[in-house]
Design a protein around this nucleic acid. Structure first.
Length: 263
DNA sequence: TTCCAGGCGTATC
DNA sequence: GATACGCATGGA
């Protein structure tokens, strides 16, 4: 980890990292750009970050928070250069990685990722951000399982989440009661993890896959939405390369960004 | 006005 | 197991 402490800020040198690409590629929904700075939240933490010359500046950040939280959140200990090399064996992926060279997978909190992607269904990214923002405003922070379990649809009406409100409540109830144990799901075999997540109303194959990839860092989880469906039918009619299985979720993120913004 | 968005539950066969 | 349809909301 190549960083230094300067006043109240942390200066980090990091390859394969672009803020815009990482924070605005549809994996997290609580980051906003203001000029050249990004302001965002993850669980109860918040951060202002921007790039300056060869460095990423973590503004007003304690070294302890950087080490204990943000290093993991931004997945700084994974070598994305190595991953991109692995992906370069495939022509389409190679182009996607060239275009979206600075994407990293954010290691988000499991409950936050799960709720976020429940909200994402049949929805567009600006609206997903709006609903999550209003939800955090309503509760004062990202809601806990307990808080969602105690909510009712009327209480959640300010979110304008539509039919997804009842799904959020069911998710809160099942996680809070322990019927769904996210910590166990994190460490179990992915087949079992999927099966368990889908016991929650409003969690189907796509949402489960997103929760696994972004909230539990199962890099083989492969969310297929309308965009990835288009990529698969156009460029991978024979199926996705099996030799990339272990990291196909990360590959998917490069492809997702590429097809939406690069073509 | 109609279509679409990081889908899913339900009914029906 | 596959397919069809409705669903809340708001921007294009």
């Amino acid at each position: 980890m190549d960083y230094l402490v300067k006043g109240n800020d942390i200066y980090l040198k990091q390859d394969d990292f672009d803020l815009e690409q990482t924070l605005d590629c549809g994996q997290a929904f609580r980051w906003e750009k203001d000029g050249d700075k990004f302001f965002g939240k993850a669980l109860d933490k918040s951060l202002t970050i921007y790039s300056k010359n060869d460095y990423f500046v973590f503004e007003n950040t304690k070294e302890k928070d950087f080490i204990d939280f943000w290093v993991n959140y931004f997945d700084l200990e994974t070598d994305y250069g190595e991953l991109k090399e692995l992906f370069s064996c495939d022509k389409t992926l190679s182009k996607a990685c060239e275009f979206a060279w600075g994407i990293r997978i954010l290691k988000q909190d499991s409950f936050e990722a799960l709720c976020s992607f429940i909200i994402s269904q049949n929805n567009n990214i600006p609206r997903i951000k709006g609903i999550i923002s209003r939800m955090c405003e309503l509760f004062g922070h990202f809601p806990t399982p307990k808080q969602l379990s105690e909510a009712d649809e009327n209480m959640l009406s300010p979110l304008r989440a539509g039919f997804r409100s009842k799904y959020l409540i069911d998710c809160g109830k099942k996680v809070f009661s322990g019927e769904i144990k996210l910590e166990e799901i994190k460490t179990s075999e992915i087949v079992d993890s999927r099966k368990n997540l889908m016991k929650i109303k409003g969690v189907g194959p796509k949402v489960a896959e997103c929760a696994l990839l972004y909230g539990m860092y199962k890099t083989e989880a492969f969310p297929v939405d309308v965009w990835i469906k288009r990529v698969l039918s156009e460029y991978y009619p024979e199926g996705f390369p099996q030799e990339l299985y272990k990291y196909q979720g990360i590959a998917q993120q490069y492809l997702f960004h590429y097809i939406r913004k690069g073509l």
